[in-house]
Design a binder for these strands. Structure first.
Lengths: 148, 148
DNA sequence: TACTATTTAATTGTGTACAATTGAATCGAG
DNA sequence: CTCGATTCAATTGTACACAATTAAATAGTA
């Protein structure tokens, strides 16, 4: 092993990005058992979240909101449609855009999902203070990354 | 749209986990052009990082270090072997364990990777202060999650 | 009006992720 | 010493994730 530290910057323990990547995966894993009961995945959950709020949206707008492209969203939305939570149809105004609309069953899912945020909060071991700080830093980081 | 806020906890903007998930993806994306020149992906990069440090490790130990299971690592290590960066072979002591060892070419890759951390640091828009705080919070979070 | 440029989803191809299962090797209690 | 339990890596199956390309529709311009 080296002692002079020429390669210290390539040690996993000195990386900032790795904890970010690892924590994100671990947190998503915590959602799994909760979302299994609703019959959806984490990615489907955040997609439903924006649809619960807006009722009806284009694939493009959904993608910009949840940071996913059509390569991920097209199959995901087809799955949500198969499960009966959304309907997909071309916009009459512009045949290029596909409008995704929440169904009645999709809105019922929202009520069943009400307990999820609380359950997650109670199993993510983060002090109230750190949670606020983390939220602030990540918000700033995301907008700075988008601005680049 | 609701005004009473019964569903506020299900709004994307009120989530802490989503920025974590989105920032992690965005940061990994920043690595892509840099790692493309080395011919590896981000996951392959963090795997090489632990191998550069330890030279030789079992799949299990690699997995615990980089938080990946054999389902992800087995195909990934085969790709690294095809590229000539590692060698895979069963341990003589215990035929169950597969020992992964960095090759000479793998060690040469390390020198070519030396510029990556600096390049990433300069394109991740985070103040020195926030970087330290973020690292601390994520480190605490990860160890608390592991302890559960 | 023609005709190019742009916008939009869908598709293709590669590479993670991970739960669950499998099968071989090893361990350990009786 | 033996046989059931455990430990490993590999495999199977499902679901992202995203760059690059495609194809259809629309917008913009000469």
């Amino acid at each position: 092993m080296e002692t002079d530290g020429r390669y210290d910057c390539l040690k996993l323990e000195n990386q900032l990005c790795f904890p970010l990547y690892a924590c994100a995966k671990e947190v998503v894993r915590r959602y799994r058992p909760l979302l299994d009961e609703l019959g959806i995945t984490y990615t489907q959950y955040i997609t439903m979240m924006v649809l619960w709020e807006h009722r009806s949206m284009s694939v493009k707008d959904i993608g910009e909101t949840v940071c996913l492209d059509s390569g991920t969203l097209t199959p995901l939305l087809k799955k949500l449609e198969e499960k009966g939570f959304v309907e997909r149809g071309r916009s009459p105004d512009d045949e290029r855009v596909l409008t995704v609309t929440v169904t009645e069953k999709g809105m019922e899912l929202r009520d069943r999902a009400l307990s999820v945020p609380g359950a997650i909060a109670s199993c993510i071991p983060l002090s109230a203070e750190d949670a606020v700080t983390l939220a602030r830093i990540l918000r700033d980081l995301k907008s700075a990354l988008n601005a680049q």
